[in-house]
Design a binder for these strands. Sequence first.
RNA 1: CGGGGCGUAGCUCAGCCUGGUAGAGCGCUUGCUUUGGGAGCAAGAUGUCGUCAGUUCAACUCUGGCCGCCCCGACCA
Length: 506
Amino acid sequence: MAKEKTAITPTRAEDYPEWYQQVIRAADLAENSPVRGCMVIKPWGYSIWEHFQDSLDKMFKETGHKNAYFPLFIPKRFIEKEAAHVDGFAKECAVVTHSRLEANAEGKLVPAGELEEPLIVRPTSETIIGEVFSGWVQSYRDLPLLINQWANVVRWEMRTRLFLRTAEFLWQEGHTAHATKEEAIEETYRMLDVYADFAENYMAMPVIKGEKTESERFPGAVQTLCIEAMMQDKKALQAGTSHFLGQNFSKAANIQFTSESGQLEHAWTTSWGCSTRLIGGLIMTHADDDGMVIPPRVAPSHIVILPILRGDENDAAVMECCRKLEKQIKSQRYDEQPVRVELDKRDLRGGEKMWQWIKKGIPMWVEVGPRDVAAGTVFVGRRDQGPKMRQSMAADEFVSSLPSVLQEIQDGLFARAKQFREDNTRDIDDVKEFYAFFTPKNEDKPEIHGGFARTHWCGDPEVEERLKKDLKVTVRCIPLNAPEEPGICPFTGKPSKRRVIFGKSY
RNA sequence: CGGGGCGUAGCUCAGCCUGGUAGAGCGCUUGCUUUGGGAGCAAGAUGUCGUCAGUUCAACUCUGGCCGCCCCGACCA
């Protein structure tokens, strides 16, 4: 059987990491920049980020948060205040040490004006925001303090991949301070729920809510919660985190307040964030061998109109019909907003044009040619179905069905992703089976293998260390919603309270 | 930061071993044909061969330094 031609070479099965790069290129989402480790996010990719921002921002505001902005630079002494935090981030900090450039004898610019204290380009803002919060918080009446920031951060990574790990990335970071431990913990869980809601209902990316083990915890946190998603190569992607910071940062930054009973107390803080990494997750959840697939709720455009122009007397009528259709489509509403439509008038061959949009992952496209104009029909394609499954239908019927079809695509993508995760999740109670599950059959060129193993674990960090070394497998999370299920840890024979999720991660 | 590889057209790369100042495919532009489909034919544009120095009459080719990128390790939203 001849191999079907795919728009992306190689396919997922042939070479997954290369496929990922090619999808980004074909969909025109982003590209590597002249700056080491930093990416250029192109309009189509950035528009996806803007939709993420819009939806998340609304959810943050509905849960009582307000946006603010804090400095890009953090004085070194702030970062030094929280010991575990320093340990975690020191190795990946970009440091500003000079304030100007001067020409040397050879005419080359060299840094001059050394700063008295180096400035760290924020890898995350707990410390600087903590310092500022200490000035904002005096009384229990100032709490809770619920702040979010949309910003860029820098982590000097050795190896980078577009969206998944770049030296600079865009994100939001929520920072809150509370009068009581209970309230802060409640906030930590609430924001995790927001992330899970967003991932599943907007990105159509099913996630498992859970808690990180001590070894995977955020530097300086008491408790780290996360949502974990399974990519199509069966590896796990952490898609959002929410941290209960206890009083670690409030003690470091001296966030103190006078309580109702007149006591001077340290506040309890949280932080939570998600980044442009989510776009990497979106790609690896939905994209296929023909390119990107974008769920309607976060798509830059829902539908593109492709006029079939043949350079003859019919063209004017076709364009006229397309403009009318564009207006009708815009009058439809999906997700409480007008349906987003583009009319692609570019002077390109029809087939070429259609495939460009398929590769970009637009949820739907509609072709209009002279025969359609005459018959009052349109020719409709859906990205969640094969490019050959296009259908002719009455134009007005098509327009009125749009909202429900878009929702059908949204729901279908989620269901498909969830099914994939379930198909690749197994309860494993035996060490041999566990090792076999996570070992590729072809060692030279590992095939896509593994998945999520739901396995008992006694809580011993040595087990984590060994599995990481042997198989590169880690505890992705201790699921929150799983009922207690007493069992035996297959690695130590010790008792275990519940199964945890093991997997290979990004 | 350790080990390996590579920098030649917008992209992917050949040429280098055996020095004589550049090639292919894709892409781009134009023309003709084709037209409900990622097309064909023809013509054309685009390179200080990463960079600096050395050897030489002559360096993309040989030698050395530097810079950058990729892969494998340690780290990671």
